[in-house]
Amino acid sequence: MSEARLRVTDEVGETWDDPTEEQLQRLYAGLNLRCRFLVLERLDTPDGDDSYLQIFLNDDLTMAVEYRDGGPDSHHRADVPLSAERGGDEIVIPVLVGWAFRREGWRGALPWVRWDVERERPWEEHRD
């Protein structure tokens, strides 16, 4: 059996290795105000580079998405100002699946900005 290449972790610490596209969509659909985020992490990056994508559900049910593919210069975030019911899922699911399966074009779905650790810590306020 080969080692996992992708791991998904939710807010309560449950993990899934090498999920299918359908599993990713179900995990995304399960986000709620008690389980606000998913972290997708590549486990097969060279030299231990950070490579992950996070989705976070805000109080108003809009979302923030963050990704990093390498060093600090490759760390970006974007806001999705729509809840899932109002079309946010039509934006987030292609980004989630595109990143996970290394598909072309997923970056073009959102207006990414460089993540600045000094200004932005969207995940920290919800961690114990």
Rank of each mutant, 00 (worst) to 15 (best):
residue 36 R to N: 02
residue 28 Y to K: 03
residue 122 P to M: 00
residue 34 R to N: 09
residue 38 L to D: 00
residue 89 D to Q: 15
residue 23 Q to S: 10
residue 2 S to N: 11
residue 42 R to M: 02
residue 8 V to F: 08
residue 101 F to A: 01
residue 33 L to G: 11
residue 93 I to E: 14
residue 22 E to Y: 07
residue 40 L to W: 07
residue 66 E to W: 04
residue 20 T to A: 07
residue 86 R to D: 13
residue 125 E to G: 11
residue 114 R to A: 11
residue 128 D to S: 10
residue 81 P to Q: 00
residue 115 W to T: 00
residue 43 L to M: 08
residue 124 E to C: 06
residue 65 V to N: 00
residue 30 G to H: 07
residue 11 E to M: 15
residue 58 N to S: 15
residue 70 G to S: 01
residue 126 H to P: 01
residue 32 N to H: 15
residue 90 E to L: 09
residue 92 V to F: 02
residue 71 G to H: 01
residue 119 R to P: 04
residue 119 R to W: 07
residue 114 R to H: 13
residue 22 E to P: 08
residue 102 R to W: 02
residue 68 R to A: 00
residue 40 L to E: 07
residue 58 N to Y: 08
residue 66 E to C: 09
residue 115 W to L: 05
residue 10 D to K: 09
residue 105 G to A: 07
residue 32 N to A: 05
residue 49 D to L: 10
residue 84 A to N: 12
residue 36 R to K: 00
residue 111 P to M: 10
residue 51 S to F: 05
residue 120 E to K: 09
residue 54 Q to G: 09
residue 119 R to T: 13
residue 37 F to M: 15
residue 107 R to P: 01
residue 72 P to I: 02
residue 34 R to W: 14
residue 52 Y to D: 00
residue 70 G to I: 07
residue 63 M to P: 00
residue 45 T to E: 13
residue 87 G to F: 12
residue 49 D to P: 04
residue 27 L to P: 04
residue 106 W to D: 06
residue 22 E to L: 09
residue 112 W to V: 00
residue 123 W to E: 04
residue 11 E to Q: 15
residue 48 G to D: 05
residue 102 R to Y: 01
residue 39 V to M: 06
residue 94 P to F: 04
residue 126 H to E: 04
residue 85 E to F: 11
residue 16 W to S: 12
residue 47 D to G: 09
residue 49 D to A: 15
residue 73 D to N: 12
residue 116 D to H: 11
residue 80 V to T: 03
residue 95 V to M: 13
residue 106 W to K: 05
residue 117 V to I: 03
residue 72 P to W: 05
residue 89 D to A: 15
residue 114 R to G: 08
residue 116 D to T: 11
residue 115 W to A: 02
residue 55 I to G: 01
residue 77 R to I: 13
residue 7 R to E: 14
residue 9 T to K: 13
residue 110 L to S: 12
residue 10 D to H: 10
residue 13 G to T: 06
residue 46 P to K: 03
residue 19 P to Y: 09
residue 96 L to T: 01
residue 91 I to K: 10
residue 88 G to P: 02
residue 20 T to M: 04
residue 109 A to Y: 05
residue 90 E to F: 06
residue 17 D to E: 12
residue 26 R to W: 14
residue 124 E to T: 15
residue 99 W to E: 01
residue 51 S to V: 07
residue 105 G to P: 01
residue 57 L to A: 05
residue 59 D to C: 11
residue 32 N to P: 07
residue 44 D to K: 00
residue 11 E to W: 10
residue 91 I to N: 07
residue 82 L to D: 07
residue 70 G to Y: 03
residue 111 P to C: 13
residue 88 G to V: 12
residue 110 L to Q: 05
residue 114 R to N: 10
residue 6 L to G: 07
residue 91 I to H: 08
residue 40 L to V: 10
residue 12 V to P: 04
residue 57 L to T: 08
residue 25 Q to M: 13
residue 99 W to P: 00
residue 78 A to Q: 06
residue 83 S to C: 12
residue 106 W to A: 08
residue 107 R to D: 05
residue 104 E to N: 11
residue 30 G to S: 14
residue 61 L to T: 12
residue 27 L to W: 09
residue 105 G to T: 06
residue 103 R to A: 14
residue 33 L to Q: 15
residue 63 M to K: 12
residue 112 W to Y: 11
residue 108 G to W: 04
residue 69 D to T: 02
residue 56 F to S: 05
residue 113 V to T: 06
residue 43 L to S: 10
residue 53 L to F: 03
residue 53 L to A: 08
residue 32 N to V: 03
